[in-house]
Amino acid sequence: DLSALRVEEVQNVINAMQKILECPICLELIKEPVSTKCDHIFCKFCMLKLLNQKKGPSQCPLCKNDITKRSLQESTRFSQLVEELLKIICAFQLDTGLEYANSYNFAKKENNSPEHLKDEVSIIQSMGYRNRAKRLLQSEPENPSLQETSLSVQLSNLGTVRTLRTKQRIQPQRTSVYIELGSDSSEDTVNKATYCSVGDQELLQITPQGTRDEISLDSAKKAACEFSETDVTNTEHHQPSNNDLNTTEKRAAERHPEKYQGSSVSNLHVEPCGTNTHASSLQHENSSLLLTKDRMNVEKAEF
């Protein structure tokens, strides 16, 4: 173990290094160091905050020279020094078990990766560091076993998940096959086929009936047209017969005018059967003409 005197000496050296690497504005270890034209180094955030307070150039807090945003430059070497100082402080805390008085939040800088452990060898070769390295080497064999167990647990979990997924996939297939086998029997399929065939026959029977009705309507229309044509021909046949009657009536009127007047009046009210309204109107006109002729003949006879 380190003596108290040596611990104090190391602590004083760390404090001196820390004062050199402090920012003059925030009085902390410089984060993202930036250098000016006057070779003074500050935190990048502190300098941008200072420049944004005034429009135009501002003055350096140490030498009062003008500073602009374009004049600022990043210093990589200074950032490396800060990183190495942080590593020294971490090693000091691990070796002594004491917390550094002016320690900052170094938890963000710590890294437990194997590459980081290899890099620590180049920091300080001390008894405390050696003991700590031995402890780490002793704890390393235990870690692979834990990793193997965790991997086995994960693989077993994956296997159970896969088996569950396969079961879920197989179950719908089985149910679907069961439904297909038990849903419709052979008799049901035959009945469905016969039902479809009967429906098709009914459709075939319905369509000819409609065509037959249309044919019957067409035949009825044709018969009505033929009947009207026969009526017209009958009226045409009746007209010459009426003319013959008129000639006979004229002759009778010349011989017996008194008797014919009474008979002509009675004939006005008689309509021949089986004739249309057109034929009756023609008869009325003929009878009126005959009456006028008879009157003329009677007057001539009187004179």
Rank of each mutant, 00 (worst) to 15 (best):
N105D: 04
L203R: 08
T211I: 07
D39Y: 06
I30G: 08
F78R: 13
E28I: 07
T36H: 04
L81S: 14
I41A: 09
Q93Y: 13
R212A: 10
L48I: 05
E142F: 04
K259G: 09
G182I: 00
D218Y: 02
A91S: 04
N243L: 14
D39A: 10
T189D: 14
I215D: 11
E258G: 13
T163A: 09
S79F: 07
K118C: 01
F78M: 06
A224D: 05
D95L: 15
L151H: 12
F78W: 08
M47S: 14
V265I: 11
S145P: 06
Q283N: 11
K250S: 11
F42E: 13
S264E: 12
D95V: 15
G159N: 12
G199T: 04
T211P: 15
P57M: 05
R77M: 07
E120S: 14
A279D: 15
M127V: 13
Y104W: 08
Q209Y: 01
Q209H: 14
S197L: 10
K87P: 00
Y195L: 08
S287N: 06
V153D: 08
V270D: 10
D119L: 09
E187L: 01
R135F: 02
K31T: 12
L62R: 13
C26E: 14
V7T: 02
S139P: 09
V7L: 08
L98F: 12
S152I: 00
V270L: 02
I123S: 02
N243R: 08
T211L: 01
V13G: 09
L81V: 10
G274D: 05
P272Q: 03
R130V: 06
D294N: 05
T247M: 13
L5N: 04
C60R: 15
N52H: 13
Q138T: 10
C90I: 11
T292I: 02
Q147C: 02
N105F: 12
P240C: 15
Q125M: 06
K37A: 01
K134F: 01
L158H: 10
N143Y: 03
L245W: 00
L85G: 07
N52F: 11
S71C: 12
Q205A: 07
A16E: 05
C60I: 15
S156R: 07
K37F: 01
C26R: 15
Q261F: 06
I30N: 09
R130E: 07
K19C: 00
P57V: 02
A253S: 13
A223Q: 08
T207R: 03
N267Q: 01
G210P: 03
N267I: 02
L5T: 08
I20A: 05
S3H: 14
S197R: 04
I123K: 03
K300I: 08
L164R: 09
M127W: 14
S79K: 13
T149K: 12
L94Y: 07
A279V: 08
L51Q: 09
L155W: 03
T248R: 02
R130M: 13
T277S: 14
L72I: 11
S156Q: 13
K250T: 03
P114A: 09
T277K: 15
A301F: 10
P144R: 07
Q138R: 05
D294E: 15
G199P: 15
Q53W: 07
T96L: 13
S152M: 01
R255T: 13
H256T: 10
V190F: 14
N234I: 01
G262D: 12
Q154S: 04
A279F: 00
R132T: 15
P257G: 12
C273N: 07
A91C: 10
A224Q: 12
G159P: 12
K108N: 13
E99M: 10
R174S: 04
E214I: 02
L62T: 06
Q154L: 04
S103N: 03
G262L: 03
S152L: 00
V232I: 12
S58T: 05
I25M: 03
D231S: 12
T235R: 02
L29Q: 09
L29V: 07
K222G: 15
K55W: 00
K108V: 05
A91H: 12
Q205H: 05
M127R: 07
Q53E: 04
N15W: 02
R251Y: 07
D231Q: 02
C225R: 13
S71W: 13
L21H: 09
L27V: 10
V153P: 13
E187W: 00
S197I: 01
S228L: 00
L27K: 03
D119Y: 13
F78A: 12
K69I: 00
Q11T: 09
N65R: 02
K109R: 12
M127K: 11
S156K: 04
C43D: 09
T248W: 14
E140N: 12
Q168H: 00
D218H: 08
K134N: 07
R70W: 06
E110K: 00
E142A: 09
A220Y: 00
E32N: 09
G56S: 10
K250D: 03
L94H: 15
E271R: 01
E28G: 10
A223H: 09
D231M: 14
C63D: 04
A193V: 00
G97V: 00
C273G: 01
G97C: 10
V265R: 03
L245Y: 00
P208I: 00
H40W: 05
V10Q: 13
V34D: 14
Q53A: 08
V7A: 10
T247K: 14
L81F: 05
I123E: 03
A220V: 02
E148S: 07
Q73Y: 04
S186P: 02
L203C: 15
Q73R: 11
K64S: 04
K37L: 02
H256Y: 12
Y104A: 01
E148P: 06
T233F: 00
S58R: 05
M127G: 14
Q53D: 08
V298C: 11
H269S: 03
G199E: 07
S35Q: 12
Q53V: 06
N143P: 06
C90N: 11
E214G: 11
E142T: 08
A4W: 01
L203Y: 01
C273K: 15
N246I: 09
T96W: 00
E8P: 12
F106I: 08
E249P: 07
K54N: 09
S79M: 05
P208L: 00
E249Q: 12
Q261P: 08
T149F: 12
A224S: 00
N234L: 05
C225W: 15
T277L: 05
T68G: 13
P114L: 09
R6G: 06
C90G: 06
C26G: 15
S176P: 12
C38I: 15
P33L: 14
S287R: 15
Q80L: 07
L164E: 12
E254C: 13
T277Y: 14
K37T: 08
H284I: 09
S228Y: 04
S281N: 04
C225Y: 01
Q59S: 02
D119V: 15
H284N: 05
I30C: 03
K222R: 06
N105R: 13
S216V: 10
K44A: 10
V265D: 13
S3R: 15
R169G: 10
E140D: 08
S3M: 14
N143A: 06
R77T: 15
I20S: 08
P57Y: 07
A107E: 05
C23Y: 15
N131R: 10
D294P: 13
H278S: 11
N15I: 11
L72Y: 13
E28Q: 09
K221I: 00
Q93K: 15
I30V: 07
E254Q: 13
R162P: 12
R70I: 09
H237P: 04
H256W: 01
A223G: 02
S185L: 02
R165Y: 10
S75D: 00
D218F: 00
I30D: 09
R135T: 10
H116L: 01
I215Q: 05
S263C: 15
A224C: 08
R6A: 06
G199K: 05
C60H: 14
V232Y: 10
T76I: 07
S219Y: 02
D200T: 11
Q73H: 13
